[in-house]
Design a protein around this nucleic acid. Sequence first.
DNA 1: AATAGTTGATATTTATAAATATCAACTATA
DNA 2: TATAGTTGATATTTATAAATATCAACTATT
Lengths: 147, 147
Amino acid sequence: MTEPKAAKDIPIYTISAAAKILDISVHTLRMYEREGLIVPFKKESNQRLYSQEDIDRINCIRNEIKEKKISINGIKTIYSMIPCWDIVKCTKKEREKCGSFNGSNSPCWTYNHNLNVCGTKNCRDCIVYSQYSECNNVKELIKSISK
Amino acid sequence: MTEPKAAKDIPIYTISAAAKILDISVHTLRMYEREGLIVPFKKESNQRLYSQEDIDRINCIRNEIKEKKISINGIKTIYSMIPCWDIVKCTKKEREKCGSFNGSNSPCWTYNHNLNVCGTKNCRDCIVYSQYSECNNVKELIKSISK
DNA sequence: AATAGTTGATATTTATAAATATCAACTATA
DNA sequence: TATAGTTGATATTTATAAATATCAACTATT
């Protein structure tokens, strides 16, 4: 009796509820978002909402910062090394024009990618964000594509 | 008339000379070494010596810390994602026992690897250290092994 | 053989990233 | 429609990583 995968990704927590659960301030949550570490839901009114998956993700990020002593810019750089172009199957032409493919400071979901295969798709729903940038998964991904 | 590649890797600077060139303290150089960011030459007496390549490498590390705001542990984590097992052609058995293959906090050259293909070879002379961990090269490496 | 520079280890200082606070305008909810 | 919570922007505080200083023992160099 496993729950459907999406069940953990239902937007239920307001920013203050999420902050309380995580024992951090709402300001910190907004900072993480501004830095491109998280992409919460947004209502039409622009209000943020968080799912249990978001909470788990943020707990992981906290651990990287507090326990592993990796700075926010370090985490961004690590995320930027995920070979998204391979995962989402960008063409050579698309890669050449892509800020994510050509940069190394920020995760792909912080760039505009309306002009490539990603289109206007919400990055929350992309496995690059939801799966491969999960806690400690980047090295496992590199292992899987290496010989 | 290009110089032989090794010319830049001749140990000529003492720690105080290197510190003066880099405009940092000798203590900082020793700290970077303790953290596993650099591997200087060692004389039989244990005295450190630095080459021009070392100076260039340390300048790059300084830039990552000071300009890109990546913490030392962040840099270590990034180095740890270099697929050394692929580069030096470790066997499956060797990988299973390797701290570098299985960890994600520290570069491969900070682990003991006497029992795998690296043997007692000095990591300075390994391309994983000398080439692939050069400034900004990690993402380029990931690009080259991805589809 | 004397001076300058080195070693590792521990303690201290400083620079700054991360977190928090404040603000006025806006939105949700009871 | 009143209260509580939200928004983004800017300013301030705090926690701590990075850098430096100190130490006694040892090594290189003149």
